[in-house]
Nucleic acid binder design. Structure first.
Lengths: 158, 158
DNA sequence: TGTTCTTGCGTGCGTCACGCAAGCAGGGTC
DNA sequence: GACCCTGCTTGCGTGACGCACGCAAGAACA
């Protein structure tokens, strides 16, 4: 089981995670409000997958984001309409279409990632270097632990 | 500006945050799928506010979660229907109704928080005590930095 | 080669949560 | 007591989603 100290630390981590997620949601909502034509987050995530991992078929993409194929189909249509993703015929299977990020799509992706990185670096600009690196390391470890633990248990929402 | 090392660390933190948020979303979605009658996250957040900070009026609640009063009104109606929140007449103003968490509402809140804490403690059970405490400290600091930085800049979505 | 089954994708339909605008009840002011 | 203001609720339209279905293309088989 867990000691009271472990539970107390867990309470702090949980509270801060809720706070952080809430903050991220609000930043996201604010961004969407300022850029009404921007694709929503779920759609953008498809572009991220394509830009990072290369061409994929729609079904594989739906699987990757754990979403319904119909939903992905509509989201991809939106990305194609914006010129961020292209459909190319799958040479191996005529009924499938490969989805591939266009140059513009990769540009948008890189630009957003750089903006994000600069933002994070900016908000941590007053941190000691040690703390910064330690936080990155522990955050990675926490996410790893979370992922490997997720298969076994589910956490409540808050 | 930022050094390349700072940007590199920021990139790791950003990537891990995206991964972590995605994981949390999936856990949340799974929870909702398993408990179709559960209130959604935004609605539950209202209960959290009421349980933690005491009675409030609907308008103040809407302000607190940065949501439209009409949305909050419907969410509160749902919570009332479930018996988790009660409407009591505001002694100071007849048109306002104070919202207060019922005993059952507080019980549900406490139960969920304990479940969450136990889950977090469980997934970190193999962590050294030092790392656990350090992570809690740095996460809190990161969220603080984020919050104080948010007023000035906005981050892109991914 | 022609028939049938399977696979991959797109589309109509209903659902749900949300914001905006209008409506309604209660207060305050003169 | 007439007026306006305030706090909340209720239509209404919108957007994203999942489910069920339809269509096209390959695969299997006689």
């Amino acid at each position: 089981m867990s000691t009271t100290d472990e539970l107390q630390t867990a309470d702090e981590i949980g509270s801060q995670l809720v706070r952080l997620v809430r903050l991220l949601e609000r930043v996201q909502a604010q961004y969407q409000a300022e850029h009404p034509d921007a694709v929503d987050r779920a759609t953008y995530l498809l572009l991220v997958h394509l830009a990072k991992d290369g061409a994929r078929r729609a079904g594989a993409l739906a699987e990757a984001v754990h979403s319904d194929p119909s939903t992905v189909s509509r989201q991809v249509a939106h990305l194609v309409q914006l010129g961020l993703v292209e459909r190319v015929a799958d040479p191996a299977d005529g009924r499938a279409t490969l989805l591939v990020a266009t140059d513009e799509g990769r540009r948008v992706f890189d630009e957003n990632r750089q903006l994000r990185n600069r933002g994070i670096a900016s908000l941590m600009s007053e941190w000691p270097d040690d703390d910064r690196r330690t936080f990155a390391r522990l955050l990675t470890r926490f996410t790893d632990s979370f992922e490997s633990h997720k298969a076994r248990t589910a956490l409540p929402k808050s």
